[in-house]
């Protein structure tokens, strides 16, 4: 439809992160997601665990980091249901919850697969990983390569 772009994909309008090693130094996070693992980086020098994952430690600025696993199940502290103004690409109602992952970290995350009024405080939720739009990338011979991508949310147990 767009005559100038001739159907080309403008990544600047892309809501998903760039995930491959070509574009992102924390690409292992997404590899781990494909294995059903929710991970982040921890500093081998000062012990600080940060989220989201980093390339330097926000405590001591060390680059000596390792990947560690976070719990993949958690408990709902607060749930919200967005009924109006949901961004394109998301279901309505769009449900979010403040989720306590085993006392290690609290995430405000999307909860998929619940109908209105279904998700309650105290409910248990678990990690769910799903494919998202692949990323078109220029190949060496001018061809377009589609890089697969994933993202995560939670679902009621």
């Amino acid at each position: 439809m767009n005559s100038v772009l001739q159907g080309r994909y403008a990544v600047t309008m892309d809501m998903w992160p760039l995930q491959s090693a070509d574009f992102n130094r924390i690409h292992p996070f997404y590899d781990h997601l494909r294995q059903g693992r929710l991970t982040t980086t921890k500093c081998r020098d000062c012990g600080r665990q940060a989220f989201p994952p980093r390339v330097i430690c926000p405590g001591c600025l060390s680059e000596n980091l390792e990947w560690v696993d976070l719990p993949v199940t958690g408990r709902v502290l607060v749930a919200t249901e967005e009924e109006v103004g949901v961004p394109v690409g998301f279901e309505s109602p769009l449900i979010h919850a403040l989720i306590d992952l085993g006392g290690q970290i609290i995430l405000f995350a999307r909860v998929k697969g619940c109908s209105t009024g279904e998700l309650k405080e105290g409910d248990e939720v678990r990690l769910v990983v799903f494919p998202v739009d692949p990323l078109p990338v220029d190949g060496r011979k001018g061809e377009t390569i589609l890089q697969e991508r994933v993202f995560f949310a939670f679902e009621k147990v």
């Binding site: 989201p52 967005e82 405000f108």
Partner: peptide
């Protein structure tokens, strides 16, 4: 609404569908 996904941390909160986020303030209010 789609443009607003650039308003929060795009790679983490934006990808959760949080733009200029009424859900955040609803969670604050609750």
């Amino acid at each position: 609404n789609y443009s607003e996904l650039a308003s929060v941390d795009h790679d983490w909160d934006g990808a959760m569908g949080l733009g200029l986020p009424p859900p955040v303030f609803a969670a604050v209010a609750k």
